[in-house]
């Protein structure tokens, strides 16, 4: 039995496309990255899983239960961290968490207390007075306090500073070690690469492919931007792994997934005025990823 399983899951909003014929399987205990550009259908998929919206056709199951018919049972075992959370701003953290606890008929009190402590959250603060990072912590606590077997996270790292991000990932890793399956939606490639076992790539509402994370890792492209000191000088980079080489007003841009050391040494033969090595936009990586598939 899969933890999450969808069969031709499809959602149209009127005539506009949400997702089309999505077939996904999540295994027990894995961390599954769900990645794609904004508007690809990640949030639509999550909302279908949680029955906030109803499928146009197809079906989804969680723990073998139907996401529409048995949604209430499913939610006893699912924790959800929304991308953009609203948590009754005028309430105090502790009152809000008590309200969250009240939906589960068993003792979550101790667990909540542990989480609040672990995340260093002030229980007496008003939620609307909290910083974005602290609001996210409240979200994490409400998603975890009933010890769910499946965690659904929608863009969980957006707006978190690196320190909190690390603590957040530590917490998730710990949960995962205890057997919790994690569905991790993101448009940040590096988060998914760091943390997930398998990854599903969605684009324009369709699942393009599902891969082990290692397969993506070989594709670790960097976006390189170089400006030479002397604009009249011609730059060429005769190295493996250079793609999309363009020149704009004396600035050169390309994607690179070869040996960085070789690249630096190559560039060092010129007078470099400026150099950026950045994570490329997801779209850029995908483009090459699939062109390459096509060539095979």
């Amino acid at each position: 039995m899969y933890v999450v399983e969808t069969e031709n899951l499809t959602k149209y909003y009127g005539r506009s496309r949400g997702i089309v014929d999505l077939n996904l399987q999540l295994r027990e205990g894995e961390v599954f990255g769900f990645i794609g550009p904004n508007g690809a259908g990640k949030t639509t998929t999550i909302r279908l899983l949680l029955n906030f919206i109803f499928p146009t056709r197809g079906r989804a199951r969680i723990f073998g239960m139907d996401c529409v018919e048995e949604s209430r049972e499913i939610k006893r075992q699912v924790g959800y961290l929304p991308g953009e959370a609203g948590y009754y701003g005028d309430m105090r953290v502790k009152d809000f968490l008590r309200y969250a606890e009240s939906f589960y008929g068993r003792g979550c009190r101790q667990r909540t207390r542990d989480l609040v402590e672990a995340l260093d959250l002030n229980p007496d603060a008003r939620i609307e007075d909290l910083s974005l990072g602290n609001k996210k912590k409240v979200g994490i606590v409400q998603a975890l306090l009933h010890s769910p077997r499946l965690l659904i996270l929608d863009e969980p790292t957006s707006g978190l500073d690196p320190l909190i991000q690390k603590r957040f990932f530590d917490l998730l890793t710990e949960e995962n070690r205890r057997g919790v399956t994690i569905f991790f939606s993101s448009h940040v490639l590096s988060d998914v690469q760091k943390f997930c076992h398998r990854v599903g790539i969605i684009k324009e509402g369709r699942l393009l492919r599902v891969d082990q994370i290692e397969a993506l890792r070989g594709q670790e492209f960097k976006r390189v931007t170089v400006t030479l000191r002397d604009p009249s000088e011609e730059l060429s980079v005769p190295l493996q792994g250079v793609r999309d080489f363009v020149r704009e007003n004396g600035t050169y841009r390309f994607l690179f997934n070869g040996d960085v050391d070789a690249l630096i040494k190559e560039l060092a033969r010129h007078g470099v005025a400026n150099l950026y090595l950045e994570e490329p936009a997801l779209e850029e990586v995908f483009m090459h990823y699939y062109e390459k598939e096509g060539e095979r």
Binding site: F52, R72, E73, K75, G86, Y87, Y88, A100, F103
Partner: peptide, 14 residues
């Protein structure tokens, strides 16, 4: 409006 509905409907309630 306050987006709290996502919290509410993620609870085990019909």
């Amino acid at each position: 409006n306050e987006k709290t509905v996502e919290f509410l409907l993620a609870r085990p309630v019909t």
